Structures are given as structure tokens and as C-alpha cells.
Simulated scan of single mutants.
Amino acid sequence: MAEEKDDAFTPAERDALYKAIFSRRDVRGQFRPDPVPDEVLTRILLAAHHAPSVGFMQPWNFIVITDQEVKSRIHADFTRATEEAAAMFEGERRSLYSRLKLEGIREAPINLCITCDRERSGPVVLGRTHMPAMDLYSCVCAVQNLWLAARAEGLGVGWVSILHEDALRDALGIPERIVPIAYLCLGHVTHFEATPELESKGWRKRLPLEDLVFRDRWQGE
């Protein structure tokens, strides 16, 4: 019988990975005030820092926010932005949107802003020569790593995207050349929902995988 390689996952390790993927949720209203230990936060950030990046440029930075005054500034902008967003929907859709809780900015003990420094490796980056947005996508991979690591630690994460970029830059002192990628809320939660909240609340259903997989070339409309 062939020897098992040291880098192979055991069945239990494989199942744990899939459990984290399938039970990850965008958390909004279940945050508890309990502090997140520094060693846990460090592990989560280290997981994010080990995301793949184009040309190994590692273009991310992580702004850790615990100051309530800063959180309040961000929340005030969210309030303005979500009022603007609600007006973009009509009828029952607008009514449902207004009933959804879409952030946990003040409740979560930690907020995180993940940014992209597009100049970190100079003007020519291996792998970005013909697809210039690859550094931005690399930072999104860091977000996903962080999210899965947090779930494995029993912590919830919520991504807040209903914000004005200029207001976010101003509140956090982000230079013009740095691109804000994700504003996240992080902390212990009372529970994780069995299904994504937007699905359970009737906003959208998960699409069937078989409708999304093509072979060899595009087969959609």
C-alpha cells in the first residue's frame, strides 16, 4: 500500500475544511461584545496574509478598528448610504431591503478594513502585465482566507459594502493611492444561521451548480 504523503489531508481535516466553507455566514445581527483574544486575531490575520497574490506582491494591509468613535463615523456613513440604496429598489423589494439588518459595525468588537497597495511591487508586476486587476483580486483572496479562518475559530464576520469610499478613506486616513477592498465586522456570535440570511429572508435563492458550469467554452445566452 502506498505511503500517505505528509502534505495529504486526513479525512477529518478535509471534512473540517468543507465544514468551514459551507457553514461560513455573512453575520450582521448576532455579534456578542466579548473581546477577541489577541492571539486569535493574529492567527486570523496570518491566515489572510497567506492568501495567494499575483507576483507574490502581497498588496494588502489590515486596519484593525476598535475605537467606538471611529466605528460611529463609519456607521453614520452606512446610514446615509443605505438610505440612498433603499431608494434604488421599488415596491416590496424596497420594503424588504428596509427590514434587513445589513451591518454590525457598532456591535462587533473589532472592525477590519483590508486595503490594496497597487504600487507595492512597482509598475510592472509578474502576472499583472495583461490583467491589471489581479492585485485587487488577490486582496479578495485574503478576505476569504480571513473569513474561513474566523469561522474555524468560532468567530463571525460581516462584510459591509454599503459605504461611500470617500467617507471611509476620510474616517480611516487612507491615502488616495491605496484602494479600500473590504470593511469587515468581526467577533463572537450568539449563533450561525443554518442558511444565508438573504436566502432565508427571501431576497435570493442559491443558484443550482449545474446551471453555472460550462465545458470548454461559454454556453450561456
Rank of each mutant, 00 (worst) to 15 (best):
F62D: 07
N145V: 14
M131K: 09
D77G: 01
D211S: 13
I21N: 00
C139E: 07
R24M: 01
I181C: 04
R215V: 15
A152M: 11
H164C: 04
V27T: 07
P132W: 07
C185F: 05
L207R: 06
I74P: 02
T129A: 07
W203H: 10
Y183G: 08
T190N: 11
I21A: 01
I178P: 00
M134K: 11
A171P: 04
V140R: 07
N61W: 13
P180L: 06
L41F: 00
H130N: 14
L45N: 05
H130Q: 14
V40W: 00
P175Y: 07
W60P: 03
G202R: 06
I114K: 04
R73I: 00
R93M: 15
A171W: 03
A16L: 05
F89L: 06
L45C: 02
A20S: 03
A81I: 08
W60F: 11
L112K: 08
Y18E: 03
L102D: 00
D135W: 04
T42N: 09
P132M: 11
S95Q: 12
I174S: 03
I181V: 14
Q144A: 05
C141M: 13
P37S: 06
L126A: 14
L112S: 14
F192M: 06
A8H: 11
T42E: 05
I178W: 03
L126K: 13
L100A: 11
M88V: 01
D67G: 06
R28G: 02
E90P: 00
A167R: 03
A194E: 09
L207S: 12
G202L: 12
L212E: 09
I110T: 05
P175C: 03
K205G: 05
V54I: 06
N61V: 12
D6F: 12
A171K: 05
A81K: 09
R120D: 06
D38F: 02
K201V: 14
R204K: 12
D117A: 02
L102S: 01
R14F: 14
P37Q: 02
T66E: 07
L96M: 10
K101C: 04
P175K: 01
A86V: 02
L148T: 05
P175E: 02
I110L: 10
E3S: 14
R28M: 04
R206D: 03
R25W: 14
